[in-house]
Design a protein around this nucleic acid. Structure first.
Lengths: 236, 236
DNA sequence: GTCTATAACCGGATAGAC
DNA sequence: GTCTATCCGGTTATAGAC
């Protein structure tokens, strides 16, 4: 189920041309060559010509499969999410405590992204541009975003913390946003072993989990209502 | 005082060549022409050749004053901050309530940035890359950032809210970060009249101001200590 | 120190032949 | 699906004028 969903996201991310098995193979070759070079030299330093050459295809052929250099990033998103899913699955099956689940899922994201730390800076570059189809908020990214959000829904509803029904719709989105914030921090984090990022997660995850648990507390009803009203208004 | 500081930031942003009055004038001409074109057509669609042509200078001359197209953005930062300062000054003199001060200063930022809303997307693109000298977190940007932070220090300490001394060092930074978050939202906000952004500010500013006021409350000592410890650790 | 003119390089992107 | 040729614009280089 999760795997099927991930594949569909990949399709969207990778775009139309994927008819024949051979074509599929060529695209995969180009993509992995590209990521290889990105890891080795960084994004800016990797030219489309270099990618094509190492992959043993013509420049134009690379553009046949990927509309632009940036679209390689979109494909990377999708692949990265798949790896995240896989790394997160065991935790979700084993652990039932919300805080632990949340922490381990976020850790999984960071761990699986680590080989691309340098490259990810560029990734966020395109992410911040609202009109780019590569923005995580863009319609083009919505499949991957939806799946990523679904993962957080599972973090939430598979835990033994009672989630107040009012929050059920919005919380997964907010957790996804929380993870985006962590990643933004991680991108700027050059401490050894990404110490700072882990520190930040360790502390904030506790805060988040506690807040979710407390949200049912009668004392917090007005605050909860207010936050929910704001969220609703922001969408309209 | 504020003006002097702003000028020094401009100098850094604009770079070395600025000896003669004539040169100063030429640079200003190139910059305003560029911003004009950015506003009209957007960043990507504006070529350096077009900027040079409309400014009536040779292409090489544009590069004489601005190391790259992106460096025009750095200059834009500095200019934008100056306008923000100017727009914020009357508020800071008139109003003493923390919440009002904070809101109006953030509003001033949004209002003065409004003509560049489209362009600002690109701006954030480059901002998000941690290795770019244009990142607001980079050393190159630190003068403008420092001044921007100083503005929030004034918001804080010029108000009639008692700020707990433990927080004095960090709060201005956090408020600056808060404003960055608002701007990130604003960039993605295409609602008429930027309704959503104003809504978000309206609600969160209240939360922020309240939290600052409550931070002295004995009940919150443990939380305050914890947050401060985290912030300290994140820097080490 | 400022500025012009012009040519060239490089790499992302496109067109069109096969 | 794949290739070659070409365009376009950021950037650099040069050589020289005021």
């Amino acid at each position: 189920m999760a795997a099927t969903a991930a594949e569909s996201a990949l399709d969207v991310a990778l775009g139309p041309p994927a008819k024949t098995p051979k074509g599929e193979q060529t695209r995969a070759l180009i993509l992995s060559t590209a990521l290889e070079l990105f890891r080795e030299r960084g994004y800016e330093e990797t030219t489309m010509r270099a990618i094509a050459q190492r992959a043993g295809v013509a420049l134009g052929n690379a553009y046949y499969y990927f509309r632009s250099k940036e679209h390689l990033i979109q494909a990377f998103y999708a692949r990265s999410h798949e790896e995240h899913l896989e790394a997160a699955r065991p935790v979700l099956e084993r652990e039932k405590d919300l805080k632990e689940r949340l922490r381990d899922v976020v850790y999984a994201k960071i761990r699986t992204s680590e080989p691309y730390h340098r490259f990810s800076g560029i990734l966020f570059k395109t992410a911040a541009d609202p009109h780019s189809p590569l923005s995580p908020f863009s319609p083009e990214s919505s499949p991957t975003r939806r799946e990523s959000t679904a993962l957080f829904a599972e973090v939430l509803f598979g835990s033994n913390t009672k989630v107040h029904p009012d929050l059920a719709d919005e919380l997964p989105n907010l957790l996804w946003l929380y993870q985006m914030g962590i990643i933004l921090f991680w991108i700027h984090d050059d401490s050894p072993g990404r110490r700072r990022t882990y520190l930040l997660v360790e502390h904030t995850v506790d805060l988040v989990a506690r807040t979710i648990g407390l949200a049912s507390n009668p004392l917090l009803v007005p605050l909860r209502k207010r936050v929910l009203a704001l969220l609703r208004d922001l969408k309209s």
